[in-house]
Computed example of a mutant assay.
Amino acid sequence: MQPFVYNALPSRVVFGFGTLAQVAEEVRALGCSKALVLTTPQQRASGEALVRQLGDLAVGLYDNATMHTPVEVTREALAVVESVGADCVVALGGGSTIGLGKAIALHTDLPQVVIPTTYAGSEATPIIGQTENGLKTTQRTLKVLPEVIIYDVDLTLSLPAQMTVTSGMNAIAHAVEALYSKDANPLISMLAEQGIAAIGRALPRIHANPEDREARSDALFGAWACGVCLGAVGMSIHHKLCHTLGGSFDLPHAETHTVVLPHAVAYNTDAAPEAMARIARALGAETAARGIFDLAAKHGAPIRLADIGMKEADISRAVEIACSSPYWNPRPIEPAAIRQLLDNAFSGTRP
């Protein structure tokens, strides 16, 4: 066994079916009594229902959570926090809502109860990404780690099949990069492989039957496992590219992860053979890159940047941004090779 360092993250996880009923209990356990519920505009009705469920524990609903966590939205939400005197936030939704909850916590230290409805995995990390002036930046701080995560499998049963696949691929990306991170350690590597395998076996079943409760449970567990991996170790070229494409070119988050991941894995294949073997084994695939690509392609997910809003003319600028301040990566960041990576992702070439 090689020497390693592992920092466990302090958070409480409640996982199961029907666990939404426990939100009030968790708010009280935090010593809070003035919860501001957060959602996106699309999930406003679910947020209103949660406000009613919380009763006197809720002081309002803010329903303008936005993809990539724009700082101007955070400022607006902070004004609402102050006006209603909130002493905690309850984020109900996917990565956009969870990101807003984290942004509020970054500025206020308010405790967070998070109820994920997708497989984004952000809830399990002390990482926040924010967008300002067309650039997305990230930082890691325990101030944004949610105190409580409530996983209710029932809330994911209505997640559309294609959104399920892209959200699941987003989660897999967290575990993939954890396997070849400079901070990789045996505990996280085992959890990463388990998370990839759980989502890899769940997605085909959910695609065939979106109401398969056992498969939904596997996928949600896998999302948590993959999120924990991202929270414990560092990010590499895949996340840098996705942050660039999302923050600077406004591409949709989960879809961007889905398209870029197999090509980022192909880029790092020779530099991280042990990680690639684990990924391929978890997916039951010939190679890691092809296993990831095929999992998306066979289940209706986008496989080309061209199909999710990227313009070919913007690829050069994306390369410039991504290479100007790169994350650590097992293979050196070479602009010409990154250009080829993005060209392949733009056209949807199978690795």
Rank of each mutant, 00 (worst) to 15 (best):
T108R: 11
L220F: 14
V80Q: 07
C242N: 15
L92W: 05
T258S: 13
Y327N: 15
V153I: 10
A225G: 08
D212E: 11
L261Q: 11
P160N: 05
Q112V: 06
F221G: 02
P111R: 13
G200M: 08
I279M: 06
G291S: 08
F4W: 15
K298P: 01
I199L: 14
L261H: 07
G95R: 09
W224K: 04
V37Q: 09
P252C: 05
S33H: 15
F346E: 05
E26S: 03
T164R: 11
G309L: 07
S46W: 10
K182Y: 14
H107Y: 12
G101I: 04
S324C: 03
E177R: 07
V14S: 04
T138Q: 07
I172V: 15
R216K: 13
H107C: 12
A345I: 06
H107I: 00
M235Q: 13
G99A: 04
L61E: 03
T244W: 08
V51H: 02
L54I: 05
F293S: 00
T39M: 10
M1S: 15
A197D: 11
S158Y: 08
G200W: 10
H239R: 11
Q42K: 15
K240Y: 03
T137K: 13
I206S: 02
P330T: 08
R52A: 14
T39S: 05
P3A: 13
P111E: 08
M276Q: 14
P332L: 14
E48H: 07
S167F: 07
G348R: 09
S324G: 07
V73G: 12
V114Q: 05
F293Y: 15
Y327V: 03
C32D: 09
A178E: 01
L220I: 07
A21N: 11
N185F: 10
A24V: 01
R339S: 10
R317V: 03
L145S: 01
D294K: 14
A289H: 11
I333S: 11
N344T: 02
A275N: 04
I206P: 04
F346I: 10
C229F: 12
R339W: 00
H253F: 01
S217Q: 14
A223F: 09
G200C: 07
R350G: 00
E82F: 00
A91N: 12
P330A: 09
Q53Y: 00
E214Q: 14
R317W: 02
G129C: 07
R28D: 04
S46N: 10
P335L: 02
G134E: 14
